[in-house]
């Protein structure tokens, strides 16, 4: 039999485009992620605010809270990309028509778009509301970006696995948490140091750990995805 005529890139872009169009029309994942993140953000800022934390502790505590908001916001919507395909029985059509790797890459990019949008809205709001003083804004932004990239890489495969399970509920968070913890710890430390002032060497060390995690998860996900998606 002849190989597929379509290129991997075309398939990935078609899936990404379909998911974006579909999401902006239904707004299920967008609403879940933004409602959760903004609600927690405003709760934290009103109840705790910046003044109840000692100045010395602010970088570490505020960084930790930021990542808690980012992590659980992601957990509230990132699994939708696969759960929806399974629940609406559109998965078999996609399994037939697209390469497994294209499905993974398309869904990964879609999740990255969602998390990127959330990060772009929530992070500046959080900085303003919590009066989070940041000594190295560029390094801080890079830590947030790479942290989100690593997190999205780690959870996209888990989202595909959860979508196949009968008891979805909290399974996504439960499975994701132990895998993402090392990344979160490094990201929290990185953003905390970027807030107090970080040297280029420290920044590179932090980013290389996150990058290695994301790279390893990405390769592993690409290898394992077909088994999860087709079986």
């Amino acid at each position: 039999m002849e190989p597929k005529n379509s290129s991997l890139v075309n398939e990935v872009l078609a899936i990404l485009n379909k998911d974006l169009v579909s999401e902006f029309r239904t707004k299920v994942a967008l609403n879940a992620i933004f409602l959760f993140s903004l609600t927690v953000l405003f709760l934290v800022s009103f109840v705790v605010g910046p003044y109840k934390i000692r100045t010395l502790d602010q970088p570490a505590i505020l960084s930790a809270w930021l990542w808690i908001i980012v992590f659980f916001s992601g957990m509230s919507g990132l699994d939708r990309v696969f759960v929806k395909e399974e629940e609406t029985s559109t998965a078999p059509g996609l399994q037939l028509a697209a390469r497994s790797s294209a499905v993974f890459l398309g869904k990964f990019l879609f999740n990255l778009c969602l998390m990127g949008m959330m990060g772009a809205v929530v992070t500046p709001l959080y900085i303003v509301l919590m009066e989070f003083s940041i000594a190295s804004p560029l390094y801080f932004a890079a830590e947030v970006f790479f942290g989100i990239l690593g997190m999205t890489t780690g959870v996209t495969l888990i989202a595909a696995m959860v979508a196949k399970a009968r008891m979805k509920g909290a399974l996504f968070s439960i499975l994701s948490f132990p895998i993402i913890i090392p990344l979160l710890l490094v990201a929290i430390e990185g953003t905390s140091k970027a807030a107090t002032g970080i040297s280029s060497m420290e920044f590179l060390r932090s980013i290389s750990v996150i990058g290695s995690f994301a790279g390893a998860m990405f390769v592993l996900s690409l290898i394992l995805f077909e088994k999860v998606w087709i079986e």
Binding site: E11, L13, K18, V21, T88, S89, A98
Partner: peptide, 28 residues
């Protein structure tokens, strides 16, 4: 394949559905 278990993307139009699958199938 056409089976009752396979469903369509409800929030896409008929034309968008065709365009989507023609890109995936590599049928220009």
């Amino acid at each position: 394949m056409c089976t009752p278990e396979m469903r369509l993307y409800e929030e896409l139009t008929g034309m968008e559905t065709m365009a989507f699958f023609s890109k995936l199938r590599g049928v220009d």
